Simulated scan of single mutants.
Amino acid sequence: MAISFRSLSLGVAACALTTFACAQEVTLKVHHFLPAGSYANAKFIQPWCDKVNKESNNRIKCQVYPSMQLGGTPPQLIDQVRDGTVDVVWTLPGYTAGRFPLIEVFELPFMMQNPEATSKAVWDYVQQYDKTEFKDVHPIAFHVHGDGVFHMVKQPVRTMADLKGLKLRAPTRQTNKFLAALGATPVAMPVPQVGEALAKGVIDGAVVPYEVVPSVKIQELVKFHSETDPSEPAFYTSTFVFAMNQKKYDSLPADLKKVIDANSGQAFSGQIGKIFLEADGEGKKLASKNTFNVIPKTELENWKKAGQPLIDAWVAEVTAKGVNGKQLLDGARALIAKHSATK
């Protein structure tokens, strides 16, 4: 027993002298809804994991589970990270319709023109106006994607009249409302369901950014891609959150918290937005054999008029919940303008 005790004492001394040798290590279970080969996984999620691993001297490791491999559905991801079923998730708050109404301001019609600047604005907006909605998780980043695009099976979209009666997939509550205001029949569904819905004729088209194209092979399922005038704000975008379980974060030693913190926040949010914009270009190339058109600014003025009642309704809705909706709308627009001027 004396030998064992002496060995233990030497081991403790060695740990004290060589901190990293015996320091706490952590493995993060990272869960999301897109395939491993998606741009989101390959260009953002896995690189983040690699970076925190390197900066922690291999003490933070990730096990990434794409395509909902740990079970559940995309709308359940936010609860999975809240409850500690997983440690980190990447998801859309809008997949749980109406649960995060304040952050929906960025999903209103014609709010976003540059995803890098707008992603920084989303982070700042949450810190200033919207911490309560995300109090049950530890946010690492918020971001948006690039311009939404119409991907159509049988006919392009040139005017509002072209949308009448068509069944179109949209990701979130506000985008669904906008499509309905434009005359379409919105069909809410997460991205992983889009490919099958297009192939089976359940929908006539989908609104997603080009970044999503390879994830569901949209280029093989549609013939037409209708973009809005690039000089105008996007007719829609979606907000995303990259979040960690709060108890998991709290359990980390101070030096590992610093690593997570150094790879979180406004700058990182903007970086993700930039990555998604670059991925749009790569996704568009995959669809190069299809037909493209641009919906002109003159036509989009009609769309803006159709979308204004949605904006007014959102302001009224959140104001009824006890916050100043007009202040939040103005604040979001001011933050977008601020970061657009300095990006």
Rank of each mutant, 00 (worst) to 15 (best):
A2W: 08
F5H: 14
F5L: 15
S7W: 06
L8K: 09
A14V: 10
A14C: 09
A16E: 13
T18Y: 14
C22W: 12
C22S: 14
F33I: 04
L34Y: 04
S38V: 00
K43N: 14
C49K: 01
D50Y: 03
V52P: 07
N53Y: 01
N58E: 15
R59N: 01
R59Y: 05
I60R: 02
P66D: 00
M68N: 08
G72W: 08
P74W: 13
P74K: 11
P75I: 12
D79N: 15
R82H: 11
V86C: 05
L92I: 03
P93I: 11
P93W: 07
F100P: 11
V105T: 06
F106Y: 10
L108N: 05
F110R: 04
M111E: 00
M112P: 02
T118M: 08
K120L: 12
A121N: 05
W123T: 00
D124K: 15
Q127V: 05
Y129T: 00
D130T: 10
K131A: 05
K135Q: 15
I140G: 05
I140L: 14
F142D: 01
H143F: 15
G148Q: 08
H151I: 01
M152N: 05
M160W: 06
A161V: 09
G165Q: 10
R169D: 15
P171Q: 11
R173M: 12
N176V: 04
K177E: 13
G183N: 03
P186N: 08
A188E: 11
A197P: 00
A197Y: 00
L198F: 06
L198S: 01
A199L: 05
A206G: 03
E227S: 09
T228S: 15
S231M: 11
E232N: 13
P233K: 02
P233M: 05
F235M: 14
F235D: 11
T237L: 01
S238G: 08
F240W: 09
L252C: 06
P253Q: 08
L256C: 10
L256Q: 04
N263D: 09
Q266G: 03
F268A: 01
Q271T: 13
G273T: 02
F276Q: 11
A279W: 10
E282N: 09
E282G: 03
N290C: 01
T291Y: 12
L300R: 15
A306N: 08
G307F: 07
Q308D: 10
Q308N: 08
I311R: 12
A316D: 15
A316L: 11
T319I: 03
K321T: 12
N324G: 00
Q327W: 06
R333H: 09
L335T: 03
S340N: 10
